[in-house]
């Protein structure tokens, strides 16, 4: 999807994050993310990948450095965010959960209805608009969360280990759904994961991070063509990329400074 000439969407310039406790979550992170890219932040627990994502979303402040959005003006309204948990309002129906971003933006229910229905159709949950979250499986809840992120038609989708708690079958299905939506909506996706296999399958770029302090150690381009289907997982190309990314990840295990 991304090309050499694609404009820069996000410019992360020498960004660090230090918490009040003194913990350095991210140190000197610099990255340029182009429009239309599918970038995975990969790393062990505590490497600051979620913190980096939250800083991009504006949910966590930056201690030093700058995050700039190039091209169009991307305020928080233009970001879709999918959390590790489905993060649905249990008191609201599926429809109302997906409608939430539009409701908060002042869009009337009547006007929002086609957009909510479209978002639900995209994730295969049209029949469940009136259901409550407790009536859904873990995978279905995550689909609702994705529909909610899509309903504002934002071009930037941030996903924080969204499928970590799901079984492998469901995760594979949702991986394919996300890839399809990325292509259909011409999205830019930043996907946080700790799975080498997931990152290689989904992304055209894997940013490997190390822990203590969190920092970028490798930036690997995955040149395998899209669309990618399940059989991609059985190709030598996929295995090679997994090996390369795994090696980069293994190197991070020896470089952490426990004192931070």
């Amino acid at each position: 999807m991304s090309t050499a000439t694609a404009p820069t969407l996000i410019n992360i310039d020498n960004v660090s994050k230090q918490y009040g406790s003194g913990l350095i979550a991210v140190r000197d992170m610099s990255l340029k993310i182009e429009q239309g890219q599918f970038v995975s932040f990969l790393g062990p627990s505590g490497c600051g990948k979620s913190t980096a994502l939250r800083m991009i979303a504006g949910l966590t402040s930056v201690s030093t450095g700058q995050i700039r959005f190039g091209g169009e003006d991307h305020g928080p309204q233009d970001i879709g965010f999918v959390f590790q948990e489905p993060t649905l309002m249990p008191w609201a129906t599926v429809f109302n959960n997906v409608y939430l971003p539009l409701r908060l933006a002042g869009v009337s229910r009547k006007k929002a209805e086609p957009r909510v229905e479209d978002a639900l159709a995209q994730v295969g949950l049209s029949k469940f608009a009136k259901s409550y979250p407790r009536e859904l499986s873990g995978g279905m809840k995550m689909r609702v969360s994705i529909a909610r992120a899509l309903v504002t038609r934002s071009r930037l989708l941030l996903m924080d280990e969204p499928f970590a708690a799901l079984d492998e079958m469901t995760r594979f299905k949702l991986n394919n759904d996300v890839l399809r939506l990325w292509q259909e909506y011409n999205l830019t996706v930043i996907f946080v994961t700790h799975s080498v296999y997931e990152s290689v399958y989904l992304s055209n770029r894997v940013v490997v991070m190390a822990a203590r302090p969190g920092r970028v150690v490798s930036d690997i381009e995955i040149q395998a063509p899209y669309p990618r289907a399940e059989n991609f997982r059985n190709t030598p190309e996929y295995a090679n990329y997994c090996a390369v990314v795994s090696d980069a990840l293994n190197e991070t295990l020896d470089t952490g400074d426990i004192n931070h």
Binding site: L59, P76, F81, T87, M89, L100, P101, R103, L104
Partner: peptide, 20 residues
């Protein structure tokens, strides 16, 4: 996380009180 979501979508204090 829902609080963060409301922050992300720039909910007003009244919206936050009413819907969350």
């Amino acid at each position: 996380n829902l609080r963060d979501l409301f922050t992300l979508y720039r909910a007003t204090p009244l919206q936050r009180l009413r819907y969350l």
